[in-house]
Every structure is written in C-alpha cells, then in structure tokens.
C-alpha cells in the first residue's frame, strides 16, 4: 500500500512538474529566440522575458468583444489552451516515462488534438466578423490540409520504425537504439517534421510575424482579440511552439539523456533547456539566412514536407 502510494505521489509530482514546466517556461524560449535573432541582425533586441511582460500586460488590459461574435470567439482561446495543456501531458516533453493523462491519446490522438485546436481557432476567427481574421483563417485553411497530412504521416513513419504509436515507447526505443535514428524513414520523417515545425510556429521567412496583412497568417487570427483573450492566445502559441519543438527534439532529433527515475527527473529541466538552446540556434540561423518569399510559396514548401513524409513512409513499407 505504501509502495503504491509512493508510486502515485512520484507520478503526480512528475505530472505536475511536466505540466508547469511547459506552461511556465514556454514563453521563455520564444524570448530567447527573439533575442538571438536580434543579436544576429546586429540589433539590441527585446529582453528574453518580453513574452512574459506581453502576457502580463494583456492580462491587465480590458477585453473587447466585437459586436456579433459568438461564444466560440469568447471561449475558443480557453479551449485551445486546454487542448495544448492536455497534449503537454501526452508527449514526452520533460519526463520520458508515462505520467497521468499519458494514456489519453497516442501519437495519432496528439495529431488530432493539434488539428482540433487549429479548427477551433479557425472557427473562432470566422465568428468575429472581422475581414482580417477571416483572411488569416482562410489562409490557414488553405495550407492546413498539407501540414496536418504531414503531421499524421510523420507519426505513422515513426510508428512503423518503432512498431508502436506510443510517443514514450518511441523515445525509449530510439534512446536505446541510436542506429535506428539513421534509418531512411527516420531521417526523412525528421526532416519533414522539422519543416512542419518551422511552418506551424510561424518561423518561415514567408510569414510576417507582425500585423502586416500581406504576410500574416497566425497573427491575422489574433487581430480582433484583446486583453485576457489575447494573452491566452499568445500563451497557447508559445505552448504550441514548445510542444512541437520538444517532440522534434525528444522523438525525432535528439532523444537521449532524459532521466526517468524519481527525483533525478528534475535534471531533465536543465537537459531540456540545453536541448532547446541547440534547437534555437539552428532555428535562428535558418530564419535569419533565408530570404523572404511570397506567401503562396507556403504550399510548395508544405508539399515538399508532405512528399518527404509520405515517400519514405511508403518506401518503408516496401523496404520492409
């Protein structure tokens, strides 16, 4: 009984650690990335804590709701935040062993949750009645059929390699068998997911990070949001970036070094920080060296990612 209770407490602590780690540190990585980009561009740049200040500022401001908008517009940001919170407990972001809620979904379930969040965001944007938000929603809908397809096929590819669709088992399998990371399916699935990570987090040099209407996609869907709802949306965006980046690191690119035993799992916090620093450097270099391209090129980019993911998924089946 005491052993069971100890196990329960340990799992609870791991669950809480993972959840609060994601929620509380996700904006920090966005801040570090913005700072590093500024340094590469010979600018002073904002503080690495600027995303926290923005969220705090928005939380204190008045929330304005456009006339005619419905309940999806009002409550959508909370639901999306909840969905990303659930995904944060499904995938191995900090602790490489199953925790509470891990059994809620597998890889495919995670992908469907990402799609659900995107759907709710589009629905809430269309409900606002704003042309700018509709523009962002339409653009997202135009591109999402390829990005979600890539996400699902990439997860299929990983499932084929590791013979499981449980992300924790995948992480353990790849950690224990480093040569599996050199298989064709894994290399090209990693490449496809890396391209997807760039698109999903708005890092493409095709997309404007601000409110310039010619290039806005994600920001367009935040256009009419203000106050607390905008803060929640921004926070969800940071969480989404962190979750996708951590999947990229722990399942595809660099699954090693995570500690699973209690209380050594706390060492995973600095380990994940170092892994993220590596990813941030790669992202910053790519983001600042690529020339800006036209918006509709996103389809070409996503088609390439989709091609990589499905080609080597199919070859994986053919190659046995």
């Amino acid at each position: 009984m005491v052993v069971m209770l100890n196990g329960y407490v340990e799992t609870l602590m791991m669950t809480l650690s993972q959840y609060f780690f994601v929620v509380l540190t996700a904006p920090l990585y966005s801040g570090i990335l913005a700072k590093l980009k500024a340094m590469i561009e010979s600018r002073r740049g904002p503080s690495i804590f600027q995303p926290y200040r923005d969220i705090w500022k928005f939380l204190r401001k008045e929330t304005l709701i456009p006339r005619g908008s419905g309940f999806i517009f009002r409550y959508g940001p909370y639901v999306i935040f909840g969905i990303y919170s659930l995904i944060a407990l499904i995938v191995p972001i900090l602790v490489p062993v199953p925790i509470f809620f891990t059994a809620s979904a597998d890889f495919l379930g995670g992908a469907i949750l990402f799609s659900l969040a995107a759907f709710i965001k589009i629905a809430s944007s269309l409900e606002s009645g704003s042309n700018f938000m509709s523009l962002g929603a339409v653009r997202t809908a135009s591109f999402i059929f390829l990005s979600e397809g890539t996400l699902i096929t990439v997860f299929f590819a990983v499932s084929l390699i590791t013979k499981t669709n449980n992300p924790y088992v995948t992480n353990n399998f790849l950690s224990a068998n480093p040569f599996q990371s050199l298989t064709l399916e894994h290399i090209f699935a990693t490449l496809a997911f890396f391209m997807l990570f760039f698109y999903e987090t708005g890092k493409l040099p095709l997309e404007s990070p601000g409110l310039a209407e010619l290039g806005m996609i994600e920001e367009g869907m935040n256009y009419e949001y203000s106050g607390r709802l905008l803060a929640i949306n921004k926070w969800s965006g940071h969480m989404k970036q962190y979750i996708l980046g951590s999947i990229l690191l722990n399942v595809f690119l660099f699954p090693w070094f995570l500690q699973s035993s209690f209380p050594y799992f706390l060492l995973d916090i600095p380990i994940m920080f170092l892994k993220w620093m590596l990813l941030i450097v790669i992202v910053a270099v790519i983001e600042t060296t690529l020339a800006k391209m036209r918006l509709f090129r996103i389809l070409d980019y996503l088609a390439t990612a989709f091609t990589f993911s499905i080609l080597f998924l199919a070859f994986g089946v053919l190659l046995g």
């Binding site: 070409d300 088609a303 390439t304 989709f306 091609t307 053919l318």
Partner: peptide, 21 residues
C-alpha cells in the same frame, strides 16, 4: 504549379514503383 507537380509526381512514382517492384 510546384505543389501540384510535386504531389502528382509523388502519386505517379508511388504507383509506378509499387507495381513494377
């Protein structure tokens, strides 16, 4: 249309390769 060409190319080579192989 690069995206459509890539996807058509993908379908074409997958079907062709699968059948012949």
């Amino acid at each position: 249309g690069i995206a459509s060409h890539l996807l058509l190319d993908l379908v074409f080579i997958m079907i062709g390769t699968f059948i012949i192989y």
